Computed example of a mutant assay.
Amino acid sequence: MKKQVLLAVAVCAGSAGAGAAAAQETVKIGHVAAMTGPVAHFGKDSENGARMAIDALNARGATIGGRKVAWQLVGEDDGGDPKQATAAAQKLADARVNGVIGHETSGTTIPASKIYYDAGIPQISASATNPKYTQQGFNTAFRVVANDIQLGRALGRYAVKTMAAKRVAVIDDRTAYGQGLATEFANGLRQQGVNVVAKEFTNDKATDFSAILTRIRASNPDLVFFGGMNAVAGPMLRQMKQLGMNVRMMGGDGICSDEMHKLSGGTMADGQVVCAEAGGVEAAGMPAMDAFRAAYRKRFGIDVQIIAPYSYDAVLAIAAAMDKAGSSSPAKYLPQLARTNYKGVTGNIAFDAHGDIRDGVITLYTFKGGHRTQIAVTR
């Protein structure tokens, strides 16, 4: 699945008393995700997490190399669209921003990453999971969540070993995220000795699935895997019910929020859907995560969807790298970011040689009473 924060430095001139004095440095952190469109609820969640990080930096007077700075969030909307995402990326590159967190989806993150790389701007994704993002050889690309290889194969193992699935149908939405996740899930199934009995695809704006579901129903599956977002998965689940397909559904973090209950029209049965979040915390980290969730609810009046704690950590990891380097200049703090070892709300933030999170965690969930309920945390 699964969204960006961008950094620009502006220095203002000022004077105090009889002589000129250096003005306080303003570090602008931009955030780019879908603020409009079908996955805007995830985009807003990501932006909220970044905003909380900015508030925290300002509240504690966070410095860079001992120099006091002011932190500012600048938001952009990519609509979940690759073309709009590259336009936003170019706009920020032209503004000589210092860093990026995002974009929200793999389909927007990957094309935008080339623009940031060419401009020498560090980029952290808090949600993009397609392996290609960090396999392009861009030393500016990082992610703070596990990738689809880890996620898909963990889901494949769970489907066979725990859910005892024997006949699995797979649908993807043809996006970089959905297709990549479905491919790795199928690989995970094969590793467990189970093959896909039906393979179909749709698109990320579709609303009618009767044709593909009718074909899938003929294969008599005991599990349907969907690679895509809950804006499509919810209506698909409703139409499965209408066709008498009372089978289980599985997917990644794109379907792993409480929005599934509403989007399915209330047809989602308890335990029917199993999903995995590319991230999560183990028992030792739960107090910090619980505190973050409580602070988020107090600040925004709603619960965390998925991405907020990861975008929060991504902003603070960049700030820590800047402070250690003594500079907000991309060329100076990028080496520090690459070897960071930052303890965040979501766990330890450290990157491998490709920019992937080290020892990425996967969290499995189901839904009960319309609310996401944790099953297990695994690696």
Results as ranks from 00 to 15, higher is better:
323 D>N: 15
248 R>M: 05
61 G>V: 10
252 G>H: 12
126 A>N: 02
182 A>Q: 04
80 G>S: 00
88 A>I: 10
172 D>C: 03
68 K>E: 11
47 E>M: 02
379 R>I: 05
284 A>D: 14
63 T>I: 05
191 Q>G: 10
195 N>C: 08
41 H>P: 14
54 I>V: 12
9 V>S: 11
308 A>G: 04
272 Q>P: 02
74 V>Q: 00
360 G>S: 06
30 G>T: 05
129 T>V: 01
265 G>M: 15
301 G>T: 13
10 A>V: 12
298 K>R: 13
152 G>F: 00
44 K>F: 11
345 V>T: 12
283 A>L: 09
111 P>F: 02
161 K>N: 13
172 D>M: 04
74 V>L: 11
352 D>S: 13
44 K>V: 02
379 R>W: 13
7 L>V: 12
250 M>S: 12
56 A>I: 12
86 T>W: 09
248 R>I: 02
303 D>P: 14
299 R>M: 07
182 A>S: 12
115 I>R: 14
102 G>E: 03
162 T>R: 14
76 E>R: 05
101 I>E: 03
184 E>M: 00
222 D>N: 09
297 R>M: 05
314 A>Y: 05
62 A>P: 02
257 S>I: 01
348 N>W: 04
374 Q>G: 02
191 Q>L: 15
363 T>V: 11
32 V>F: 04
203 N>V: 09
104 E>M: 10
12 C>L: 12
340 T>I: 11
41 H>C: 08
370 G>K: 14
175 T>H: 08
151 L>R: 01
58 N>L: 15
234 G>A: 05
342 Y>G: 10
248 R>G: 07
112 A>L: 07
39 V>I: 14
325 A>G: 12
292 F>H: 13
276 A>M: 11
367 F>C: 01
106 S>T: 03
368 K>R: 15
108 T>D: 00
215 R>H: 07
305 Q>V: 03
270 D>T: 13
260 M>F: 15
183 T>W: 11
125 S>W: 08
56 A>W: 07
254 G>C: 00
304 V>E: 06
354 H>D: 11
248 R>S: 10
101 I>L: 06
124 I>K: 12
213 L>G: 08
319 A>E: 00
41 H>V: 14
265 G>I: 13
254 G>M: 07
189 L>H: 03
273 V>W: 06
166 K>A: 01
65 G>K: 07
25 E>S: 05
33 A>H: 00
241 K>N: 13
146 A>M: 04
141 A>I: 12
346 T>C: 03
339 R>Y: 09
272 Q>C: 00
69 V>C: 07
143 R>K: 15
166 K>E: 08
